[in-house]
Design a protein around this nucleic acid. Structure first.
Lengths: 366, 366
DNA sequence: AATTGTAATGAATCACGAT
DNA sequence: AATCGTGATTCATTACAAT
């Protein structure tokens, strides 16, 4: 019998697997991966590969048989790899897929049809895109990423505070301005040509992985290419699994990742959410004598008062209950955070009771 | 026999038609419309109520017209109206459809399947979107428009130079930064409430119509709402046909459009406004690899040191936070400009991090 | 009259653990 | 499975009142 630990150990962590991504994914244990990042091909030139049954010439004006057929083939491919990907994800896992208008609508539809739950579409706004030389359309200055949970109920990872910190204290938006991959970062092959036509910038993966994974998470990239996902995962102290069928890309990726150094443990620490902090019952403040039964609390806006009781509940005008319930009732609000709503008096000053909670929490950690 | 001119004259130009858009479109002559702009229901699937952190309730889009039982039902509806729309278009006609991640992938797939030829996806980046109040996802800060020709061979209209002029002489990109519709532009009903939950800004339609139509063109909007498309078409000397089944919306739109005056040619010249220098989050320096997590920064006066973390915060002696917060704390100052306070080392020299910010800014403007 | 402060609001798939 | 209680969470802009 396989135990959980054995399955986990069986994962080929931090390696690049050779082969067709669907077959390889199906050979790995189900429910073992935290995040999938996928940059699937969108320029499958199926027109050339698919042949019309009777070999007749296509009238370009009003015959869309060709494109229809190629979309069908692309959909089949997309649904197959997404199905294999979904099987691999842990119940609370999530997926990111990047694409352009050529393929992203097919991908999004397939994701929704297969039960993934879209969380955001994120636009990568390129600060230095290639111009439209013929002046017949808009400069194609962005690509689209879809972020989706494995299912509607998945408790996906989202490091809200870390992303907010990355954005100078303002909530991170669904449009990201980042340059395309150029200069030293752009990998070259033996001939000095670019090693991969669509190498993604590490900055993009940095933001995805800081925001949607934690250190130690397993990230799978089924279209590994030259390994941007693996390189950034390694820097950030995450584990990766790459799948790539082109030997030339694997070679470049191996070499690249071997040179990457993991950041210090301290540097990987990221601003944490308050939700993760330990819960402190209000009653503990009374038990510890930080507040005394009978003591009067005042609301932040000074409009209401309530008295502390021995069991850690409050009594106000015609209401009693928890600090939250009494606050909500007095304000006529659907809810209320009693910790920040109520204040007590010490040495002539009015202080939020949350200060006392912080005091207890700091004692807990030290 | 009907001549071309008679068909054209038979069109109910510059009127708002009452009824189901599919039936109405099928009653109009085929191949008679230059451009279709469509803002279909997005099929939002909202669960409970949502409150802002100040406990005020968010007025959600919960109208009947946005309710569909399933993706299948939504697809059926989408394919039906797109088919009717395609029949109406002239051979060289084009369509714009706007949506969000809830529906746009279904729309894009349907467009491609029906033989429309996607020319660009254009991202409307909202300068003032509603935040994500629970901190569980990215701020939903954009919507997506798909621009497609009737078919692959359609010789669609694209006023390249006009758009370039609108964009201060630089080729127009596929991402447009425009504010949402508020203030005086936002139409109110008799009770002073917003007349329509999803009124689009005129600036958006202005750019679409200047770019994708010529004066005298016929523009059809099958989900007319309060008539932004009609109002902007009239201003710009284009003809419109609106279809709207809600009498209340039609009334507001009629009144609105009657007040619109067509622009003088001279008035169409847009004056360009200078922008303030773009804000660059410090985190972007880390994401882009200009500074590495774990790297040490030194204060300008060399008295203090701090280390960079992966989320763009700093850690110094007993302090962590933004470059500004840590600088202020270490100096015991009320505030501190971290950009000019902190320095890094490169090639044996100590350089203020502001140099890196300038580098990013120059990339953004070039 | 000009400035400052306060309230309102926008296409939103917006919590989670204990019982 | 469903319910209940705790308590975490917002940015840009406009409108209007107060100073």
């Amino acid at each position: 019998m396989k135990t959980k630990e054995q399955s986990a150990e069986a994962l080929p962590l931090n390696t690049i697997l050779d082969g067709d991504c669907i077959e390889v994914m199906n050979s790995l244990p189900a429910g073992s991966v935290d995040l999938i990042f996928a940059d699937p091909p969108y320029n499958l030139q199926l027109k050339g590969e698919l042949h019309r049954p009777d070999n007749s010439r296509v009238d370009a004006v009003d015959d869309d048989w060709d494109q229809f057929s190629s979309f069908k083939a692309y959909d089949k491919f997309t649904r197959a790899w997404l199905k294999a990907a979904r099987r691999l994800l842990k119940p609370d896992g999530a997926i990111w897929v990047i694409g352009s208008y050529h393929n992203i609508f097919r991908v999004g539809t397939a994701l929704q049809d297969q039960g993934f739950w879209i969380l955001n579409d994120v636009v990568w706004r390129k600060s230095n895109p290639m111009p439209n030389f013929r002046g017949k359309r808009f400069t194609n200055a962005h690509e689209t990423m879809i972020w989706a949970g494995r299912g509607e109920a998945s408790k996906y990872t989202f490091n809200y505070e870390a992303l907010k910190a990355l954005n100078e204290g303002i909530q991170m938006r669904s449009d990201w301005v980042l340059p395309i991959c150029t200069g030293h970062e752009r990998l070259k092959d033996e001939n000095g040509e670019k090693a991969h036509p669509t190498q993604k910038p590490e900055s993009l993966l940095h933001r995805v992985l800081v925001g949607a994974t934690n250190p130690g998470d397993v990230i799978l990239d089924p279209f590994f290419g030259t390994g941007t996902t693996g390189a950034v995962a390694k820097m950030l102290g995450r584990d990766f699994i790459g799948i790539e069928r082109e030997a030339a890309y694997r070679r470049v990726a191996e070499k690249r990742i071997s040179k990457v150094r993991r950041f210090d443990r301290a540097a990987l620490q990221v601003s944490a959410s308050k939700r993760a902090e330990p819960r402190v019952p209000f009653g503990q403040l009374v038990e510890r004598g930080m507040l005394r039964p009978g003591e009067e609390l005042t609301s932040m806006n000074k409009r209401h008062k309530a008295k502390v009781r021995a069991d850690g509940t409050l009594v106000g005008d015609d209401v009693k209950g928890s600090i939250h319930q009494v606050g909500a009732a007095l304000e006529g609000a659907p809810s209320c955070n009693g910790w920040t709503y109520w204040c007590f008096r010490r040495d002539g000053k009015t202080v939020p009771i949350d200060v006392l909670r912080q005091q207890i929490r700091s004692e807990m950690t030290s």
